[in-house]
Design a protein around this nucleic acid. Structure first.
Lengths: 127, 127
DNA sequence: CTGTATCCTAGTGGATACTG
DNA sequence: CAGTATCCACTAGGATACAG
């Protein structure tokens, strides 16, 4: 995802890809689609994410209307993030992609191995 | 897309996103799905792409088995890129996302405007 | 025509100290 | 708890000269 505020982009596929392409967007979306999650929960459920990126990604998803942020004015504060209906709909489409990925995972691994093997052979021939 | 050779990644959604998330992957995939395309044709059909990124993206898509590269040993050389069956299947799924994006485009624009407006108001209050 | 090699910039993302 | 601010590293990506 381009984190900067990209202006109107022609191709709608590119738009949706941009919205979801960040390193963390999907993971956060999945978590928030299952149930409302708190900031610290996300830190745990999305292993490896930094505070900075967690906040940044949350803000972007919220800005795009994919997540809602609910603050409980308690002490200590409690904040819950939930997926909106739009996000849930989007997620349903992403599941289609998941299935494609799972079906083709062996193919892709094989394709890569074959490609890398061919490159290696070429390099040796050249040397 | 992470251009570097990422090793086995757990979540299949992330895999597919990574494969398609580059700034140019989708545009190239679309062009090559319509019909076999030559290098120079792509340079024209994908406006704004640099030679470097065109080659890089083509190689990555080829490595993942989404594109095939056919070289005609003529003078001057002729090279055609075509989408594989796997890529066509993937593209079909991407169309679902397109439709989502088109349906929700107004919502997203509105959500962003509202969010930015709220931020602006907060900033003024704070100042 | 179809690339590759090189140099450069901007932005993504990581680590972490600090705060209400 | 839920962030924000700061500094830093890496790499995606652009421009372009050169080559088979």
């Amino acid at each position: 995802m381009t984190m900067s505020a990209t202006q109107a982009e022609a191709c709608p596929i590119v738009q949706v890809i941009d919205r979801v392409a960040g390193k963390w967007s999907v993971s956060i979306l999945i978590a928030a689609t299952r149930a409302p999650v708190r900031y610290t929960e996300l830190e745990r459920e999305v292993p490896g994410i930094s505070r900075r990126m967690l906040t940044l990604t949350l803000r972007n998803l919220e800005r795009d209307g994919l997540l809602t942020r609910k603050v409980y004015p308690t002490v200590p504060p409690k904040v819950e993030y939930s997926a909106t209906d739009g996000a849930r709909e989007l997620y349903a489409h992403l599941v289609g992609l998941t299935e494609w990925a799972q079906r083709h995972q062996p193919d892709i691994i094989a394709a890569r191995a074959a490609y890398d093997q061919a490159q290696l052979a070429d390099a040796e021939t050249g040397a």
